[in-house]
């Protein structure tokens, strides 16, 4: 027994260290007051462009009228740490804005994004960003879809993930995987790993229409193995120039 004691002690220390590490990496815990204050900011300043209550558009007219991403499932979609940071320093996630067809024009060779029609997103103070992130994390529509997903821990070579993404499924056609590489009509994915929760990635790839019935991302009937590969690949995409 005595021989095992040092091992048990070491295990305890290691466990505590891991726990502290996880806590340090995670965003700060939310407080009830922050959630309420954040919800106030959302309702005053954000609701004119973002849908906080659902449902998602079910007609093209409603889809075209949408000015910003729906947020009624933000707590199932985003990582809180990303929200806090992005809200203070917003950088466009959808290169052609929303609705994309309202922000394009014919170019010399092909259609191009009409930057003059895109407006920058408002930036928040750190204090307000924390409150809004806290409030957004409480918006959890479609938790039933999230509960159906199981993203197994694991790794896949980046080269393989890139092949699935680009060659086998053709996702690259609409999504950027580096600031200047890929398509423009979908959200950029070179920051997907720091922005999105893995179960959301899996569920959305499985059926974009389950989340957003009229969205211009097709359901490619991706099988479970490929979904796992894609999510592992996307989780590695945490920003920067990494084609």
């Amino acid at each position: 027994m005595n021989l095992l004691k040092p091992f048990a002690l070491w295990k305890g220390i290691a466990g505590a260290a891991v726990a502290v590490g996880i806590l340090a990496l995670a965003a700060p815990p939310s407080r009830a007051g922050d959630v309420s204050a954040g919800m106030g900011i959302l309702k005053n300043s954000c609701v004119s462009c973002h849908n906080l209550t659902g449902p998602a558009p079910t007609t093209l007219k409603a889809l075209w009228a949408r000015k910003g991403p729906d947020l009624f499932y933000a707590g199932n979609e985003f990582r809180k740490s990303w929200l806090i940071s992005w809200l203070q320093k917003p950088v466009r996630v959808r290169p052609a804005g929303e609705f994309y067809a309202d922000h394009i024009k014919p170019g010399p060779v092909h259609d191009v994004v009409d930057e003059s029609t895109l407006k920058p997103h408002m930036a928040l103070s750190k204090e307000d960003a924390v409150k809004v992130a806290d409030a957004l994390m409480t918006l959890r529509a479609h938790s039933d879809l999230i509960a159906r997903e199981h993203v197994a821990p694991g790794t896949i070579s980046k080269t393989m993930g890139k092949m699935v993404f680009g060659k086998f499924l053709g996702c690259i056609a609409c999504h950027r995987i580096a600031p200047d590489y890929g398509g423009l009509s979908g959200p950029e994915l070179y920051t997907a790993g720091s922005r999105l929760q893995p179960a959301f990635m899996a569920s959305y790839i499985r059926s974009p229409q389950a989340w957003d019935p009229k969205i211009w991302m097709p359901n490619k009937h991706v099988n479970d193995a490929r979904i796992q590969q894609l999510v592992h690949y996307l989780q590695s995409m945490k920003g920067g120039n990494q084609p």
Partner: peptide, 30 residues
């Protein structure tokens, strides 16, 4: 059912172009 013109603008134009000429905003790296 939405009209084919509206569906084209929503789903097809991203790659096939707003004028249907195959020159959508996504084509450069395809």
């Amino acid at each position: 059912a939405a009209s084919a013109k509206d569906n084209y603008r929503t789903y097809c134009a991203q790659c096939h172009g707003m004028q249907g000429n195959g020159q959508g905003i996504n084509v450069r790296d395809m």
